[in-house]
């Protein structure tokens, strides 16, 4: 069964092309890493899949259906830097937020939801901190809270944006264990990752991205010098330049649709 499929996915942000014609088919039940240089569009790919960022071309299907219909099956863990840590919510509040998707906006939060949240917090080792406001945590602890939220969502497809950034070694191993556990439960986990070396160890499959999809497949097959050079080596500069020029000077359209 296919967890995620995109066709010709293109995203332009402020006249600069970030993703250009991405075609990918991701089978379920795998632990997949997305790697590429800075600005390659890795975060954007996840956001485009979620519909958080508008695509200017192409389409996305999750579990064979348009994303809007499959939203409840997706768990999203954002980058930590986009969160306001002084927001008045506690660790437990954040974990509970994970249950809101299936609960809907208006039903009361019940014992079932609280139990799920507690279990999720337990799994990441954050239950003792349940009543703490999220600003009073270390980087690793903060990351774990958001993972707990994702766990509480009980999704089939997880999209995580740099979950290992700024996290201590112990937390990092704990997170990897957790991800592997999710994979063994049949879930699909797609992770934007910043470090090549560890990417090789952690993930079953790798997606090499640099505005274009350079390669996608089992880690062993894809982690070759040639492909890595293509991803990080900057040979696609003409493409990005021309695409940017098209977006800037052309009638402003890379594809027939309007840009966001």
């Amino acid at each position: 069964m296919i967890a995620l499929e995109t066709h010709d996915l293109t995203v332009t942000y402020r006249k600069r092309p970030v993703l250009y014609g991405i075609d990918v088919v991701i089978p379920e039940g795998n632990l997949i890493g997305i790697v590429g240089p800075n600005g390659a569009g890795k975060s954007t790919l996840i956001k485009a899949v979620m519909g958080v960022v508008r695509s200017t071309g192409g389409w996305v299907k999750v579990f064979g259906k348009p994303v809007k219909e499959s939203l409840k099956r997706i768990g999203y863990v954002p980058q930590r830097e986009s969160i306001d840590w002084e927001f008045p919510v506690t660790v437990m509040d954040v974990a509970l937020m994970g249950t809101y998707g299936k609960l809907g906006p208006f039903r009361w939060v019940g014992e079932e939801q609280r139990r799920r949240a507690r279990e999720a917090l337990e799994r990441v080792g954050m239950l003792p901190y349940a009543k703490r406001q999220i600003g009073n945590l270390s980087g690793g602890q903060q990351q774990r809270v958001f993972l707990a939220r994702a766990l509480a969502q009980d999704s089939d497809l997880y999209l995580m944006d740099e979950p290992f950034a700024g996290v201590d070694a112990a937390t990092e191993s704990a997170i990897v264990e957790l991800l592997k556990e999710l994979r063994s439960q049949g879930k699909t986990v797609i992770v934007v990752h910043h470090d090549l070396q560890s990417a090789r160890e952690y993930f079953d499959m790798l997606l090499l991205l640099n505005m274009r999809l350079v390669a996608f497949g089992p880690t062993a097959e894809v982690f070759t010098t040639e492909l890595l050079q293509k991803t990080y080596g900057g040979r696609l500069t003409i493409l990005s330049e021309m695409a940017e020029k098209a977006a800037r000077e052309g009638t402003g359209k890379l594809h027939p649709k309007n840009e966001p």
Partner: peptide
């Protein structure tokens, strides 16, 4: 060749660039 484009994409983008 270089960007490994799919056959059914090529025409759309080439049109502008």
């Amino acid at each position: 060749n270089e960007a490994e484009y799919q056959a059914d994409h090529v025409h759309d983008d080439a049109e502008i660039v």
